[in-house]
Amino acid sequence: MKKFFAAACAAAFLLSAGCSTVVKTVDHGTECSESKAPVTENEAYEPLNYREQVGMWLPYVRFPDYMQGKSEESFRKSVAKIMEDAAADSVNTVYFHVRPNGDAYYVSELFPKGAYLDGDYDPLAIILEEAHDRGISVHAWINPLRLQTAEQMEKVPDSFIVKKWINAGEPYVKNVNGRWYLDPAYPETVELIENSVSEILENYDVDGVHIDDYFYPTTDTEFDREAFEASGSTELAQWRVDNVNRFVKAMYDTVKEKDTRIVFGISPQGNVDADYSTQYADVIRWGSEAGFCDYIVPQIYFGFENENSPFLPTLKQWEELVDESKAALIIGLAAYKLGREDKWAGEAAELEWINDPDIIKKQIKEVKNSSADGYALYY
């Protein structure tokens, strides 16, 4: 993992010592199988969180590097190295991908074992131990709606609830371009999402729960036509926004019912207009009204010269959108783009991430000078 840090920004983590302020209380109002029961670290565990985050995502796309085909000992060594490097670079919060595609990188009775987990160990338990030993907060990162591909779903045992729904022809699960998704229009899917959060909170000493920008998977009216027609609503877009708000609120409430000190965070895409028009994500409400999230991490994965969403105006937009008394604002930065062409940035900005190796360092400086509470890097 150190190579990712070095390649991204050797001197990028420049937030002042204030970024380590601990928030002990946040008061904002392959085959699938089951594994052994988890063991919680400490029944009296006190959640560790930082309002001013230096965050880092640990996504499932990296799991083959240090999980697939690896023993528990090998996995633990890799995780220890990741955490050592993170701590050395001032990272105080990691978002670990516990459920990326309807599969679980923790012990679950609701979802099958993670596709890249072919060892008989508990990744989340190890992540928690190694991170907490170094004073790093761990947020369980969930994709609430996204499930397995159609091919992967064939291997999922019939005992799991989503597979039962598919086999029974229930409308709660939909196939979009070869991948299954939960349809948030139904109370049954919201209940499953709530139960899945409760399962993690009951069995693990996580400090937070985190979701990113996988909300509605399509704008196609056929995705949820039956439920929409049955609802009596007349405006599809607003109805879908309401559906997303319902399960986001349910997740937040589930977290707070367990422990008000555990935080709930959302990482939507950085383009606000696209949040509404393509994913029906009510980011304005989440950032300005209590009861939806404790922190919001817009993915401002744009260069300064981006023709559609240049970094500085987009950062300013999010500063104005988020009420700091309702949610902390953490800026998501695209370290993974360093040295790569940005084909969606427009012709003039296509090579910005190649021509300017200090772009992340410059963006962190701008974040420090803004009203944001910190930043998080995606490698």
Rank of each mutant, 00 (worst) to 15 (best):
C293S: 10
L147T: 02
T254R: 05
E34G: 12
Y280S: 04
Q299I: 03
K249A: 14
A290D: 03
Y336F: 15
D212H: 09
E366C: 11
V79C: 07
A230Y: 00
D342N: 15
D213A: 12
A6I: 12
R285D: 08
E202D: 15
E46L: 13
E170T: 06
E31M: 14
A335D: 10
R179E: 13
W239H: 07
A44R: 10
K113D: 08
F304R: 11
S78N: 14
E34W: 10
T93W: 02
Y336G: 06
V197D: 01
E352R: 04
Y181G: 00
V209T: 08
Y186P: 07
N245E: 07
E352A: 15
A44K: 12
K316I: 11
E366H: 09
R179F: 05
G29E: 12
L145M: 14
T30S: 14
M67W: 04
I331C: 06
A17K: 15
Q363V: 08
Y95C: 07
E366R: 13
I330E: 01
K361V: 11
F75I: 03
E307Y: 09
Y116S: 07
I142K: 05
A7M: 10
Y214P: 00
G69H: 06
L329T: 01
C293T: 10
N245A: 03
I360C: 02
N245G: 12
V176N: 06
D356M: 08
E324S: 15
